[in-house]
Structures are given as structure tokens and as C-alpha cells.
Design a protein around this nucleic acid. Sequence first.
DNA 1: TCATGGGTACGACTTAAGGAGGGGGTCGCC
DNA 2: GGCGACCCCCTCCTTAAGTCGTACCCATGA
Lengths: 215, 215
Amino acid sequence: MIRVLIVDDEALVRSGLRMILEAMDDIVVVAEASDGAEAIAAVSRHRPEVVLMDVRMPRMDGLAAAARINQTPHPPKVVMLTTFDLDEYVNRALRAGAVGFLLKDTPPHDLAAAVRTVAAGHAMLAPPVLKRLIDTFAEREAPRRDLARKRLGELTAREQEVIRAVARGLSNAEIGRELAMSQATVKAHVSRALGKLDLTNRVQAAILVHDAELL
Amino acid sequence: MIRVLIVDDEALVRSGLRMILEAMDDIVVVAEASDGAEAIAAVSRHRPEVVLMDVRMPRMDGLAAAARINQTPHPPKVVMLTTFDLDEYVNRALRAGAVGFLLKDTPPHDLAAAVRTVAAGHAMLAPPVLKRLIDTFAEREAPRRDLARKRLGELTAREQEVIRAVARGLSNAEIGRELAMSQATVKAHVSRALGKLDLTNRVQAAILVHDAELL
DNA sequence: TCATGGGTACGACTTAAGGAGGGGGTCGCC
DNA sequence: GGCGACCCCCTCCTTAAGTCGTACCCATGA
């Protein structure tokens, strides 16, 4: 039997979820809570394996509650529920330690499957949410990274070496030692690189390298 | 009818997949290919909606092929297949534009469901893969970020403001103008912040702020 | 062939950053 | 009222960073 805690500020939503889940013979709803604070209390009292929790709630919201719940000794798997798939929620929820993210219009069958999936230790995201996550991951980050790489690509090999060392926080003297060139040459490379990249100081260059995700 | 292209270097795997998929009455396998190069040719010839492609193949591997396929005008949805859930593959595959990632031991029913899911425009990852993705996303990055935040938290409010401005690549003079304080004060704040953080120059501070993902 | 241009390298010079050591001021708290 | 923490500012000084001019190597091609 998978022990589930339902958290939502609307009683109607809670009873709807309860009905769906209680219909499964391997799932039991051990408690309900109507906000984050109650949820935390309910977790320690009822020790559920899975928590289905709304994102938006009065007093303490689902994200904060999820974070708190995941700091307890043997935390249950937290699945966030939401009406809309707002991606800032997704990222924050995952960082808060949630292992699932479902839309409230998920069909009963899928809901039960999701509960079983997370109870089995797997992560589970509704397709639109997953798609959004991938988009964020693969595309939203990529343009800045790719632009940064492209810009760095305009530098000569030696300039790139120097600029990467700059981005590690090294001084010109340290770079000179590391790359076996005089400090004057390091400065010349940095200066030429800054000119090519249209930057005014080495901190900006360091930021660019970090955006390019090249250490 | 969902038109599918199967790409794998082993004929046995191809016929296995074909058998599973052809058993579904809404899916048709329009072609097979045995490596990445063939896959690209087959995509332009047969215009499939979904491509099921092995990651590891001779000549051109699945990741490279996926990237090339996604550069074509109306690219099909690419689902990567793999035996093991090596996460470097996952990240690279998603960056290459793949919208799905399945393990080869996926049950027939799930395989068909995955094909329908991606054909419907959704993303689809096998649970272990998804879990790994989330872990990478939510946890592997987190420690460094949290440590950086903790360290920055030791600074006073004003010091933090100054250091964040530093991390944007501003000079002391610019920071002074922006925060309405003299350049001397900016220097004093920077200097004390560097001392507290045990750093030797502003580039290192900038890196720290970027690790903290603030700004 | 020798002229040209890009890459690399250096030193001299100017400007920015950082350190040391102060002096005030406000605010909250014992 | 004294104390500590934070904030703001200053001067003097040292060191680091950035700019400019120049020189050399070497490939490319007119």
C-alpha cells in the first residue's frame, strides 16, 4: 500500500484527488492538509510515502513546504500539482527537491501511475512540464552560451588561453607563470582580447567565459 | 498513422522494434537505417514524423545525427535509444534537439506510448533518465551554488550590493555612480568583502557571485 | 622574392585596483 | 551612556591592470 498525503487549499480538489486515488487498491490516502504548514505537520505525524501538493496555497506555499519536507530525516516523495505549467515553478520545485510535477487536469489513470512511479523512486513530470524543462535546459540556456562561445571563438588560441586563465581569477603574473610568458605579454593578450570582444575590463571577460561554460 | 524511422546498427534490434511498432494500428515504420548518415538520408527521403535512433553507432553516432536532423526544415521528433542511462548522453542528446530518451528494455506498450507522445509534440523521457536529468539539474549544480550563497551571506547588505555590481563587470567609478557613493567607499567595501571571502581580486568575487546564480 | 598581415612577444607608460590606517556618523541594544 | 555593527569617506601608498608602440616569426600570394 502506498501511503499518500494530499495538500491543497481547496477542499473540493482534495476530495477529488482522494476519490481518484482511493479507487486504486494499492494506494491509501492517509491524510489531507490545506496549506504548507499543515503539510509539514502531517508529514511528521502520518509518515506518507508520497505527498501530492498544490503549488499555490495561502500562508506557506507548496514550494517552501517541499523544501522543508525534504530537510526531514526520511522525506516522502513530493509531487507538485499545478493548474498551469509555469516554468519558474518547475525549476524552483525541482530545486526544492520535488520529484514530480503534474498538471491538475491529469487523467485519473495517469495520476495513479504517477504516484506509483514516484513511490518506486522514479521521477515523473507531466509531458508539457517536461517539455518545458527540456526547453529551459537545452534552449533557453543555450543561446547565451553559444553566443559567448562564438564571441570567444574570434580570439586567437593564445588569447583564449589567457582569457580563460583570467576567468579563473588568476592575476597577470600568475598567468604568465602558468603559460610561460612575461607579464607584459599576458597584458598584451588580455588587452587585445578585450578590444576584440568590445569589453573594458577583465571581469567582463571572466563573465563571458563563464557564460560560455568553459570553466 | 504515425510514420516512424528506425535507426540502429544491429539488424536484430531494428526488426525487434519494427515488430513491436507495426503491431500498433496507428504506427507505421516507413524505413530503417543502420547509422547516422543513412538516417539523415532516410529522413529527407521518407519524411518520418518520429525517428527512433540508437545513441551508439559506427560512422556517425546518434547524437551527431540528431543534431543534423534538427537542422532540416521540418525536422521529425527524434527519440534516442540506449542500453544504459549514461547521463552525459542525456544532456548532449537534449542539446542536440532530441525530444525523447528511452532505454532499450522499455516494454512494448511504453514504446508505442512514447512514439505517440512525441508525435503529439510532447517530450518523453524514461523514468531513470528523467530522474538523472533532474538530479543533474537540481542537485549537482546546487552544492556549489548554495556554498557560494552562504559565503556571500557573510557580507553586509552594502558589501553585497557592491560585490554584485563588481560581478557585472563595472569599475569602481561606475559602481560609485550607480550606488551613489564615492569611489573610495566602493574600494573600501570591495576590499573588506575580499577579506571576508578570503579572495585576492575582484574577478574571483565575480565568479563567486555567478556561482551563486545571483544576477 | 619580397611584401603583407596575422599571431606572438616585450617594455614603457598611464590608469585602475587594492591595502593600511585612519575619522566621522547613525542605529539599536545592554 | 557606552558599545558594537554598519556605513560613508578620506589620504597615502603599493601593486595590478590596461594601453601603446614596436619587433620578430612565418605563412600566403602577388
